[in-house]
Amino acid sequence: MALLKSKTFLLFILLALLLSLSACTVAGKPSIGSKLKGGSAGLPSQLLVLPVTVTISEISAGGLVQEDPVWSKEGEEAMTFALREFFAKDPSTSLVDMPELTAEESELVHEHVLLYDAVASQAFIAANMPAVGWSHLTNDFHYTLGDGLRFLKQKTGADAALIILGNDSISSGGRKTMVAVAALMGVGMPLGSSRLMVGVVALEDGDILWFQNCYAHGNLDLRKAEDAVVLFDKAMEGYGSR
């Protein structure tokens, strides 16, 4: 009884609970482009997988964040594995690999991915932050990248492109120790976080057919395939039940 009443013990329990929670917070609901509102008829059957971009950084004990390009590469490989695992279960969708591109074409694709980042962020605000005032756009979701990627449809025969942007910050050993000790003192410090933005974009006109943002706090490591699968599956929740 004395142990149960001990403040230190209670703190340990709280810490354990916090650290053990592996919930991936889906930030908002998936924003389904107006084309998909009609049901599964709008879904692409051939999906071109654009190069996955994942940025992974380390947070040091003192909070210094440093990107690690080797880890980022591992994260991209893990996420590529995760997306293939997901679509392997969907017989109505086949994945198409990127074809050989010229330097200009690669630059154009890269620029469209950057545009997607800006468009998706804006669309996210519209869909999930009504107080800001853009929510009327969700009734007529028309966000688009324009038709600049149409050449990829001509080159590959794919209907749409799958765009994946992710980032992850991983705590160093020293950081984890610091967090644990801080928790004992009653001070909260962030361990790290993982974020994934997934979008399906029609190649003919650049319309965003589907997009979703997903966050997880502190306990996923996107270098690992199994964690990438957890996050990707969460991000694609609702894609199947169109």
């Binding site: 800006a118 468009v119 962020s121 804006q122 669309a123 605000i125 519209a126 853009w134 756009l137 966000y143």
Partner: peptide
């Protein structure tokens, strides 16, 4: 307050 600012799809676009 300094200017009149309008946008169709959002200031990032």
């Amino acid at each position: 307050k300094e200017a009149l600012f309008i946008s169709l799809d959002g200031p990032a676009l």
